[in-house]
């Protein structure tokens, strides 16, 4: 699969600010800059959510299954 693109809406003021900032960086465009920032944010989130939550879920469901008589 090739890389896919979609559109998102962000306030014009923010775009203008990014435009200013992009000039001082090696990013080619606002799109590229925004993609990079979002990737960074999402990357961290994914790592955290996956680990913490699934263990919590597992404990919770274990307890429930025990109450329902499945695990003894």
């Amino acid at each position: 699969m090739s890389v896919e693109y979609g559109e998102i809406k962000i306030p014009i003021d923010l775009i203008k600010k990014i435009e200013e900032r992009v000039k001082e960086t090696e990013f080619e465009s606002v799109d590229e800059y925004a993609t990079f920032v979002l990737e960074e944010v999402v990357k961290d989130d994914d790592e955290e959510i996956e680990e913490v939550f699934s263990e919590e879920d597992e404990d919770k469901v274990k307890e429930r299954l025990r109450a329902l008589g499945y695990l003894d």
């Binding site: 090739s2 896919e4 979609g6």
Partner: peptide, 18 residues
């Protein structure tokens, strides 16, 4: 499972175009 910036779009491509 990922963070969704939901565009509700599905992609495929042929040699000619996307």
């Amino acid at each position: 499972q990922g963070i969704t910036i939901d565009t509700a779009q599905t992609f495929f491509n042929t040699k000619k175009r996307d």
